[in-house]
Amino acid sequence: MSLIAVENLAVARGGRTLLRGLDLAVQAGEVLHLRGGNGAGKTSLLEVLCGLRVPLEGAFRQRPEPQALHWLGHKNALNLALTPLENLGFWCGLNSVAEDALLPVLQRLGIERLRHRPCRTLSAGQKRRCALARLLLAPRPLWLLDEPLDGLDAQGLGLFAQLLAEHLGRGGAAIVTSHQPLPPGVPGVREWQLA
């Protein structure tokens, strides 16, 4: 069963049509790796799929509920004056998710020692790990990730592969944009080249 499916989709940004006639479906246990040069429309397509942007034409054959998808944009959605714990606690409140999972999740991502530091003092990779922590705070079947590997170190890449593989094992799916190849150890990767 597909978790998300669209047909004949056209995506525009700033009055320019970037993609046209796109048919796309993602099944449980599958990772769709979107590739394409700068300006090919990868981010705009993800924004349409998560519901932030209205498609120029086309329709959803299968549209996920808001509580069934995670969106991780290229912006981390962290306020720099707040600590990781406060930022993620706010996200839990916004989504009505229990906050008890916060500490184990931060441990899993290796940032539990940073949890009381303001985010402005964190490195780009550390902030990316904080943003990735949201994926574990609430179990949701579909992950839409825009350049999730940005700023991650070698150990972070391994951790990301592990998290993604576990997510797929539980019957989840993901659509990922990335300029670099996905780290090894992720099963079921399907590459999709945007013209």
Binding site: C50, G51, L52, E65, P66, Q67, L69, W71, G73, K75, A77, W91, L94, N95, S96
Partner: peptide, 8 residues
């Protein structure tokens, strides 16, 4: 973006 994606 997170506010507009959230279920509420």
């Amino acid at each position: 973006e997170q506010i507009f994606i959230a279920p509420a």
